[in-house]
């Protein structure tokens, strides 16, 4: 274990905007050790035995929720899933009251996904358990940002100086925002491309490069992070058709060849193959999309471990 004086014990993880570089580093380092546990035959360690974690999901999710659930269970914690459709939210209960109810059951960590930006911040303000933001609207998805950076660092050996292109629907993407904050903090260069109708105005003010043409963003990139395009954006008229999107912004091998020869292809999932990414690229040699899923588990184990223990020996009980 690192001997640095950074402790995340009891701290909420709401977004990468609010995290310091040393805090990000300690999570990335801890995730490295966690990854070793995932590959074991017997994956259970007793570190978080006696701790309880609630996955409070107000929005549909498979991979993130499963990832947090397994992360908690591999570390020996009790994990319960609450989904909005099955809870009292449908009866009109306020977020405050839902949080109070969960809190009253003695929960140690609430992992929360919610459709509204700022919902995690709200939860942190009103509830005493540690809050881990698993996505609040289009705001942030910090563990996704962390797992993306972990994946980049694992292959490239560093983040500082990397040129990262993020392509697609930036406007509606919490993944993009967490990546932007995290990558800028770690010294990477961030280039954004996508339809102007899906690009937030003024985002260049935070220090990213915005391109009208996806080719410009890809040129010489070390990493290409492709975002999911949601069909309902087309229905709202923000781009004319799926085929036009695929033609102008879809990442295919020809476009990928503009990036460095060893550039990584990433995607937070779930993918629309043939729309934002072509199948050959998604499953090609440069793709680390499967590895991202595995790393996501390691990052969530690290996050849960650090907020609950502050970072003591992984192999012993809390």
């Amino acid at each position: 274990m690192s001997k640095r004086q950074i402790s995340l014990r009891g701290k909420d993880i709401l977004g990468l905007e609010m995290m310091t570089v040393p805090e990000i580093e300690v999570i990335l380092e801890t995730a490295c050790q966690m990854k070793g546990i995932i590959d074991r035959d017997i994956k259970k360690v007793p570190t978080l035995r006696g701790k309880s974690i609630v996955n409070l999901f107000f929005e549909a999710s498979t991979r993130t929720r499963t990832s947090f659930e397994l992360a908690g269970k591999y570390l020996g914690a009790d994990v319960v899933n609450i989904t909005a459709s099955a809870s009292s939210v449908t009866k009109g209960e306020s977020l405050r009251d839902t949080l109070y109810t969960v809190e009253a059951m003695g929960v140690d960590v609430i992992v929360m996904r919610h459709e509204a930006e700022g919902a995690a911040q709200y939860a942190a303000n009103v509830a005493s358990p540690v809050i881990i933001n698993a996505g609040d609207g289009a705001h942030e998805h910090p563990t996704q940002g962390l797992l993306d950076m972990f994946t980049m660092k694992e292959v490239k050996g560093k983040l500082d100086g990397l040129k990262v292109a993020i392509v697609g629907d930036i406007f509606h993407s919490r993944v993009a925002r967490s990546n932007i904050w995290g990558l800028l903090k770690m010294g990477a260069e961030v280039h954004l491309a996508g339809p102007k109708t899906l690009m937030p105005y003024y985002i260049q003010e935070v220090g990213v490069h915005v391109h009208n043409r996806v080719e410009e963003a890809l040129e010489g990139a070390d990493v290409v992070n492709v975002l999911r395009i949601q069909r309902e954006r087309q229905h709202k008229g923000l781009f004319p058709s799926a085929r036009e999107y695929a033609r102008i912004f879809g990442i295919n091998q020809a476009r990928l060849d503009l990036a460095k020869p060893d550039a990584l292809i990433m995607h937070p999932g779930p993918m629309n193959r043939g729309l934002e990414i072509s199948p050959d690229v998604a499953y090609g040699d440069q793709s680390v999309i499967q590895e991202q899923v595995k790393n996501g588990l390691a990052i969530r184990m690290a996050a849960l471990f650090l907020v609950l223990t502050g970072g003591k020996n992984i192999e012993t009980t809390a």
Binding site: G137, A138, H139, R174, R177, P200, Y201, Y202, I203
Partner: peptide, 15 residues
């Protein structure tokens, strides 16, 4: 307001 703050909060702006 649609501006740099809304861009990074991910909230829809009233331009």
């Amino acid at each position: 307001h649609e501006g740099a703050v809304s861009a990074m909060l991910g909230m829809k702006g009233r331009p």
